[in-house]
Nucleic acid binder design. Sequence first.
DNA 1: GCGGCGAGTGTGAGCGCTCACATCCGCCTC
DNA 2: GAGGCGGATGTGAGCGCTCACACTCGCCGC
Lengths: 336, 336
Amino acid sequence: MIDVAQLAGVSHQTVSRVLNDHPHVREETRVRVLDAMLELGYRRNLTARALATRRTDTIGVIAFDTTLYGPARTLFSIEQAARARGYVVHMATVPDPEEDAFSDALRRLLEQSVTGVVVLAPQRAAVRVMGGLPADLAAVAVEGGAVPGLPSVVVDQVDGAVQATVHLLELGHREVVHVRGREDWIEASARHQGWQQALVTAGVAVRPALPGDWSARSGHEAGRRLLAEHPGVTAVFCANDHMALGLVRALTEAGVSVPHDVSVVGFDDIAEAEFLCPPLTTVHQDFAEVGRRCVDVLLERVEADGGWFDGPPVVVPSELVVRASTAPPGAGIPAR
Amino acid sequence: MIDVAQLAGVSHQTVSRVLNDHPHVREETRVRVLDAMLELGYRRNLTARALATRRTDTIGVIAFDTTLYGPARTLFSIEQAARARGYVVHMATVPDPEEDAFSDALRRLLEQSVTGVVVLAPQRAAVRVMGGLPADLAAVAVEGGAVPGLPSVVVDQVDGAVQATVHLLELGHREVVHVRGREDWIEASARHQGWQQALVTAGVAVRPALPGDWSARSGHEAGRRLLAEHPGVTAVFCANDHMALGLVRALTEAGVSVPHDVSVVGFDDIAEAEFLCPPLTTVHQDFAEVGRRCVDVLLERVEADGGWFDGPPVVVPSELVVRASTAPPGAGIPAR
DNA sequence: GCGGCGAGTGTGAGCGCTCACATCCGCCTC
DNA sequence: GAGGCGGATGTGAGCGCTCACACTCGCCGC
């Protein structure tokens, strides 16, 4: 920077002013400085800048598994929104959903002096750790359930699950089995809750849900249990599309037709849902919107210097997309 | 840090030594300093450290769309490997595959003084931009095709495509149609090349491939074109699983059975491939390994202070996984 | 006894920037 | 012509750390 200043015949401060688009720099001087930069191949050092300003213009994202559909999409749109606002994204992945792992990730981000933190880890353990965030750190929880004092951005999971279940009931199904998501995940609970709520409202008996872990494999497993343990069932609501797809496969293998014998609804609306066999009825989530809102909220918090937050969560609506995996009740799963 | 030093009754330098696990610090002093840190809730400032050492222990990842299966998985494992080695990952997503967008992402990372850069952007435009990287910057290309002077880590795409095509030919198919990946992508070319090579070796005529853009939708589209334009065809090799799935859907809709009438092979081995209808025969890629190797190579380059690199690329093998979407030739696609 | 060595510690400079302030100049107002 | 104001620039300190070096001490060898 000193070199540039010398070459342009100005002081280092003027160079800094040019760099930061300050007013009160004569056009002629500006051009001279810009030329000097170009000639010397100068690149500003944001590290030094961060040290001086105590701002890094960096946001940290704590995530569990960025390979899953929802997190992957959200992360992607967070990065885009952040970039558009002049921020850089630090990833901090958490290898297992234990509290220590979250604290560890958080500590790493804090050492990097991130300007704010997005917690994209929809597990209860993450929520607990976030309770202990430094009060002056701007933070936002995504899909994180309610953390006292923190803003959050969520998709309306409960409503989505209600829509899915009501859709099945309205088609005439007398019972809807639920395959739930991974234990300890807030989203799994919310979808479970929505399902339960819709059944209760309709006056239908609620039976225990089948376990799942979001994977197609666990959906397949659930499908086999369904065949073995739930004869007569004609409708299933799976907590995500991958499990739905695995379940459909298990039914198909057993000669049970979807949707003719059994209707299946998923959740997420993955890009390929439309092209599965049969095209999957599912609940659409607008992850891109979640990411954007998330950055909006976070940067508002940054302006406000962190501190206790008491507003309501930002809720992004979910929407049922009816395709071909649901139909009026058919034969159901045959008794063994 | 000064505060900690004062509280512990030592100099700032001793605090620094404790922080960095230097030898030659008496155990008793170390404990005293550690206690003082705890008491004051001290957190080291890596920004200042970076300024003083001129190392950020940060690696930047330039990626195009981290939502796609391969990139998502690779990014994930890069982050894990980097973390294990004490590095933090900066994401820099590129909104469109133009050279300007790549240079822009690169500039942003350089301003952040990243220690090294992984280019996870398998497009030709990315390769061109990488040619202009500063010589002293450690960098590695993933799936990037050969960039002169740069190390790269790649999955053996050509071989995978050969395996897929040969598998179909060995089943007795006389012709194999290819649905290719997105234009300008190195991987699309490599898979196309492998397919072509296998056909030529077998003495089979090569017909133009059908276009695709990796999406299930484009696979579906290709399926419809196949039905319209390629009667009699009994085997298709799609450049990725999502297109394969869309194509299977299109065939199914037309009453063409997979694998009975037509065999289909994909590429990637996405997690749900095993649970599609029918379970998809595909080429498995070990993205986790790619990510790990990538970080290994990059950090070696960091040790070596960048500079020209002349070694061969690190090649991660790909492997055909035979499932139920392929069989000996059947009826094929009926003429209209 | 003296020099040397290595363990343990302290001192000051400086990394590349921005901040607060000081300065200078030209122009307007009364 | 004195005073003031705002545009355009320069000056020096300091952000929180590490680096190179200096220093002190106890112990060894000769």
